[in-house]
């Protein structure tokens, strides 16, 4: 496919001794087309942030060991020499982080922080750069941009800081925007505004968005495709419609059942029993087995492969493959 912007193949991230590695991302593969939004869903510790940071090579190596391929526009980012990565970060790929409170430098004015993102990649006069910063602040919907250029992050609310983060990430019109839980720290009304802003930016620049979240509501709202991760592995990936209509993996089904319903508020919210096992304790077989309602003997022995069950819909589950075979 010619408009495939990001194509991740067999990405693994390991820590610890080579003989007994700790795999926090395990042979993850997915791709994003230009102009599209892909969501990665999973609980904390599922490896979704690590996957995103790997794309920008922001995971410190060592201690981490990263293998596989991250093809961005056909070029494998894992083969780009480390010293050449800064030229790609912020220019071709922008990133919005989870904690707007902690992700801005407290000692630099927001105007300077956005201007720095431009200055690092494009040379232009200070006046033009200032204009560009103001344009960006308007784009992300910050009221009174002129009056706020000299303001410091501490004077801003969480939502306003996340807008500043977005302005930084969009400063050089990147073709890929990675947003790592951009709305988690925000209250609901601001969440909607930030998501709307991201979609607006995507429309304008035809950028692709990689959205990391644990909020399925957010996914339904803005994504075309979804990758569900569990304990470092992709357990299901599908188009949004197909995932919500027909989730295959028991984990995805559990996630969907634990989304609160607006119509029936009396029912106790479903909860997947247990929690994500620490990477160190995962042995052979499917990592979801201990919590899985559909577990079989085979699950303890062998990790199920990610196989397609419908066009564009894959899952990794023995129970599903057995059911389909029947």
């Amino acid at each position: 496919m010619s408009d495939r912007l990001l194509d991740i193949r067999d990405l693994s991230v390991e820590f610890g001794p080579v003989a007994r590695p700790l795999r926090v991302v395990d042979r993850v593969s997915f791709s994003i087309d230009a102009g599209k939004t892909l969501g990665i869903v999973g609980e904390s510790g599922s490896g979704k942030s690590m996957t995103a940071l790997s794309v920008l090579r922001l995971v410190p190596e060592p201690p981490a060991r990263i293998s596989g391929q991250i093809l961005f526009d056909g070029r494998d980012l894992l083969k780009v020499p480390r010293r050449n990565m800064p030229a790609i970060r912020g220019k071709d790929i922008g990133m919005i982080f989870q904690e707007p409170m902690a992700s801005l430098n407290p000692l630099m004015s927001i105007g300077d922080q956005i201007a720095e993102a431009i200055m690092l990649h494009e040379s232009m006069s200070a006046d033009r750069r200032r204009e560009r910063v103001l344009d960006l602040l308007r784009l992300v919907g910050l009221p009174d941009p002129e009056g706020r250029l000299g303001a410091y992050p501490d004077q801003f609310s969480g939502g306003m800081r996340q807008r500043v983060m977005a302005a930084i990430a969009m400063a050089c019109n990147p073709r890929l925007l990675i947003a790592d839980e951009p709305t988690t720290a925000l209250d609901v009304t601001i969440q909607a505004q930030v998501l709307e802003m991201m979609l607006d930016i995507r429309r304008r620049f035809n950028s692709a968005i990689l959205l990391i979240t644990h909020d399925l509501g957010v996914v339904a709202e803005v994504c075309e495709r979804v990758v569900v991760m569990y304990a470092g592995k992709v357990v299901e990936d599908a188009d949004v419609g197909s995932l919500f209509a027909n989730a295959l993996h028991p984990y995805t089904q559990g996630l969907l059942r634990s989304v609160p319903s607006l119509t029936d508020t009396r029912k106790r919210l479903y909860q997947i029993p247990g929690s994500v096992p620490p990477a160190r304790t995962i042995k052979a077989g499917c990592p979801f087995r201990p919590r899985c309602p559909a577990r079989m003997d085979r699950c303890a022995v062998e990790m199920p492969p990610l196989v397609p069950y419908a066009p564009g819909h894959r899952a990794a589950c023995w129970a599903v493959s057995k059911e389909m075979a029947e």
Binding site: L56, R89, L104, M108, H121, A169
Partner: peptide
């Protein structure tokens, strides 16, 4: 180790700039 230093790297700042402008200043 702070998040804003990661932001600086994600912007495309090189190590020298990260250490002096964002690190040392803080």
């Amino acid at each position: 180790g702070r998040d804003y230093v990661r932001t600086a790297r994600a912007k495309g700042a090189r190590e020298g700039r990260v250490i002096f402008r964002h690190g040392l200043r803080n």
